[in-house]
């Protein structure tokens, strides 16, 4: 009886976990976050892709975002966006990468 209850509890926990975090991992779905840049990796002036590591304001987890749009890459290259900036970001999980769909500084004048 105890074993059966344990199994049921395990199944329930597993189901709850999938329910809670399933959306984070699912491909094709747009995920929104606000976080501070802790690191930018970009390979020179001609780079067509870069990664930025954001510390999620809500979860405090580090999320690595792949940036491919020219506008944001240009802001990395001329340092309009730098480490320490707070970013409003939307991304999709594509082939295991968190690909940015929107990457903007929250600050303005």
């Amino acid at each position: 009886m105890k074993k059966a209850v344990s199994v049921m509890v395990l199944v329930a926990v597993a189901a709850l976990t999938i329910f809670c975090f399933g959306s984070v991992a699912s491909a094709g779905e747009e995920i929104k976050m606000v976080g501070v840049i802790t690191k930018i990796d970009i390979a020179g002036k001609d780079a067509k892709t870069a990664t930025a590591t954001l510390k999620d304001n809500k979860t405090e987890q580090l999320v690595v975002i792949t940036v491919e749009d020219d506008l944001t890459l240009d802001k990395f290259k001329d340092h309009r966006i730098v480490e320490g900036d707070e970013i409003r970001c939307k991304y999709e999980v594509i082939d295991g990468k968190n690909v940015s769909k929107l990457f903007r500084k929250t600050a303005g004048c």
Binding site: D74, R80, R104, K105, T106, A107, G108, C109
Partner: peptide
Amino acid sequence: VKNCMVCHEAAGGGVIV
């Protein structure tokens, strides 16, 4: 466009505000 947007895109408290 970039030169202008350095200031004009973030006016009013953020990008596209």
